[in-house]
Design a protein around this nucleic acid. Structure first.
Lengths: 148, 148
DNA sequence: CGCGCTCTTGACGTTTACGTCAACGGAAGT
DNA sequence: ACTTCCGTTGACGTAAACGTCAAGAGCGCG
């Protein structure tokens, strides 16, 4: 059966050998040895692919490790599957929240940008606060009503 | 003129005193002193609000500091305004990329979730490889073309 | 005077996923 | 033998934004 050296996997997946060794330190990979050198079999190669995929999806190495470990246990897969599904759901929820936050920030940023553009165009920015900028918090003009 | 203690600002804005002192270390705030204690004036209070707003929008403290510093220079505001607009544009672009990444991850996650659901429901998922049992591995997309 | 409270200044700890040397080991090529 | 290459094991460094003590200082109260 085919095996791989660390540099082969490194090149194939576009990650540094350091990263691959790190995954081993973290017990996500357990290659065999030939003397001192690490030898990666298909199993390891697949696990590495899964690790990188997990990372792309935003899972932490710890989470990925748990999924892989459960996969190894293979107790009929029920445990692993439901765990993984739960993790996926969590991740989905988290990403949806993130997306909402981003939308929010984007609309504020666009509004702010527009406001600055106007100012650049010459408008002095209508200030009337006295100390009432509190809830709305100082529009986009950082106008620190110097009332001290 | 009204002033504030660190704990007042801390409570009002829901941040720890430690954070506020940190902003001072980073030179985003420069409260005056009364003996050893820090005294925050309106100016500082407004700047704190701006700092927190900047954070919500995803700017780093360094970026926020640069915007505030330029605001202080106030050289007719042209410099500050164009700098800030540029920063906003960068941030907008960055967020749009992030959002695209999230959409991508979300669709992969949903597909993966669906796949696992099916397996849980009993489907053995089409096997073909004969070697280990890594061929099937969480496929639906990252099937490590087991060519060994 | 002692108590409690707010405030201060260090200064090290935390998290995540590696990067970056340093120093060394064994095999292959010339 | 010498150099080149690939590989190895430490071990410290990095980034961001604070958290978490530790050890005092200063003040008002009873």
């Amino acid at each position: 059966m085919k095996t791989y050296s660390i540099s082969q996997l490194s090149e194939e997946f576009g990650v540094t050998p350091r990263a691959i060794r790190f995954y081993e330190d973290e017990e996500l990979l357990k290659p065999t040895r030939q003397g001192q050198s690490r030898i990666y079999a298909q199993r390891d190669r697949v696990r590495l692919a899964l690790i990188l995929r997990g990372k792309r999806l935003g899972f932490s190495l710890v989470e990925i490790k748990e999924m892989l470990d459960l996969y190894d246990l293979k107790d009929g897969q029920a445990t692993q599957l439901s765990y993984t599904i739960r993790k996926f759901d969590e991740r989905i929820n988290s990403l949806e929240r993130q997306r909402a936050d981003i939308e929010q920030a984007l609309s504020e940023l666009r509004a702010g940008r527009a406001h600055f553009e106007l100012q650049l165009a010459g408008k002095p920015s209508s200030r009337a606060s006295g100390d009432g900028d509190h809830g709305r918090l100082i529009g986009y003009g950082l106008n620190a009503s110097a009332q001290d």
